[in-house]
């Protein structure tokens, strides 16, 4: 079972967390067209490689994290709190 290096709690089993999916920048609500908005809602990069995604430490510190993970090896490059700039 993969482990997530929570910046607050340390290395914890992934079943303490929930994955929240790829991190995508939210378009400007005032100017976004339907195509742009729905690309934000639905489209995914879905790489076979490194992805930047969200994890939520549901059974731990309850912090939202941004994690860089390799989708084939599950190696985790980095994990930071979601509110902190990378």
């Amino acid at each position: 079972m993969i482990q997530i290096p929570c910046p607050y709690c340390g290395l914890r089993n992934a079943n303490e967390f929930a994955s929240t999916g790829e991190v995508k920048p939210r378009p400007d609500v005032a100017t976004a067209t339907p195509a742009v908005w729905r690309a934000y809602l639905y489209d995914h990069r879905n790489p076979e490689g490194l992805v930047t995604e969200g994890w939520y430490h549901r059974a731990g510190c309850r912090k939202f994290l941004v994690v860089e993970r390799h989708t084939q090896t599950n190696e985790i490059r980095s994990a930071r709190p979601a509110g902190v700039a990378s």
């Binding site: 079972m1 992934a14 994955s19 790829e22 989708t71 084939q72 599950n74």
Partner: peptide, 13 residues
């Protein structure tokens, strides 16, 4: 599986 992955290794859970 509850997260995106291209691995077909399988898990114990």
């Amino acid at each position: 599986d509850p997260y995106a992955s291209y691995s077909t290794r399988g898990s114990l859970e």
